[in-house]
Amino acid sequence: MTVRVMLISPAMNAALREARFAGDAALDASGARAARLAAPHVPDADRMVHGPSERCARTAEALGLQSVDEPSLYDWELGRWSGARLDEVSAREPEGVAAWLGDPSAAPHGGESLLGLCARAGAWLDALTGDVRVLAVVEPSLVRAAVVHALALPPQAFWRLDVAPLTLTELTGRSGRWNLRAGRPLTGGPGDREAERGTP
């Protein structure tokens, strides 16, 4: 029995454009437009879920998905850093940011460590069983953590994985044996790519 897990990263919003930590905000106009254009390119699934953030919920809606909220797929919990920009936090807490980037067990912000995030993503992934196709709209942090867990990568590999808005990352297999198909854009042509960049 093979599980196929299709992870879609949500569309652009203001928090992502400003490089804010875990900034939960609605999609901006170009993000919503890009998601609507991507809707015809979303693969079929037996089960559809989305993370509880506003960004994930609105992306799923714009993609035309009949998905349900999955509470365990919340974004990386970054405590007091949530909503702040990386440059602001780096100026205010340089030692804390250095520890966060260098030690996967560190949580200087008072939230969740990288190890905790990867364990949470992995627990959800490994609980999926049977011959089923699951589609989930989740924050980029969850996509990266799921890949780290599935491929048994060292936690530091998380920082080397980039997940662009509205990309599809696929994991197939089962607990302990997953194969990866790296992220690809949910777009169908040049017009879609222009919309994703925010071109009027």
Rank of each mutant, 00 (worst) to 15 (best):
A45F: 07
Q156N: 04
R197G: 03
A182C: 10
A145R: 00
A121C: 11
A182R: 12
R92D: 14
N13F: 02
T167V: 05
E194P: 00
G64F: 10
H109K: 00
P108Y: 03
P40W: 07
G176A: 10
A15G: 15
G31W: 09
G110Y: 14
S82N: 13
R197I: 00
D103L: 03
V49D: 01
G198L: 11
V143N: 01
S9L: 01
P185Y: 11
G189I: 04
G130A: 08
W100K: 03
P71M: 01
P71E: 12
E95V: 05
S72K: 04
G122V: 06
A84Q: 12
G176M: 07
A15R: 06
L142T: 11
D46N: 14
D44H: 05
V97Y: 04
D69M: 09
T172W: 00
G96S: 09
L180Y: 08
V143Q: 04
V147Q: 11
V138E: 00
P154F: 07
L180A: 14
G183L: 07
A123V: 05
A11E: 04
A62Q: 15
R177V: 00
R36K: 14
R120V: 13
E112K: 04
G110E: 12
N13T: 01
D126A: 03
R193H: 15
G198H: 10
P104C: 05
L27K: 10
D69A: 10
V97E: 02
G191E: 15
N13E: 05
S105T: 15
L166P: 02
W76T: 10
C56M: 10
L78V: 15
G51W: 08
A11S: 13
V3S: 01
A84S: 14
H149C: 09
L151A: 15
W159C: 07
A99Y: 02
R184K: 10
E112T: 07
C56V: 13
G110W: 11
L171Q: 09
A91E: 15
E139V: 06
A146V: 04
T167E: 11
M1N: 10
A57M: 13
G191I: 04
G111A: 03
G198Q: 11
A99H: 05
L125W: 07
M6D: 05
Q66E: 13
G31H: 10
A19N: 11
A57I: 07
L73G: 02
A19V: 14
S67I: 08
E70K: 04
A62Y: 04
L7A: 13
E88T: 13
P108I: 04
P108C: 04
S113H: 06
L125Y: 00
L125M: 15
T187F: 08
P165S: 08
R144F: 06
A15T: 08
A91M: 13
P165L: 07
T172K: 10
V137E: 10
D87A: 09
E95H: 11
Y74P: 00
D162H: 07
R47V: 15
A26Y: 05
L180W: 04
A107D: 02
W178H: 08
W124V: 11
A164L: 14
C118I: 15
G173N: 09
R177E: 12
C118Y: 02
A14T: 06
S9P: 07
A14V: 04
P71Y: 05
L16N: 02
V5W: 13
E196Y: 05
P155K: 08
C118E: 04
V163K: 07
W124G: 13
R184T: 12
A146W: 00
D75R: 01
R160W: 08
R160S: 09
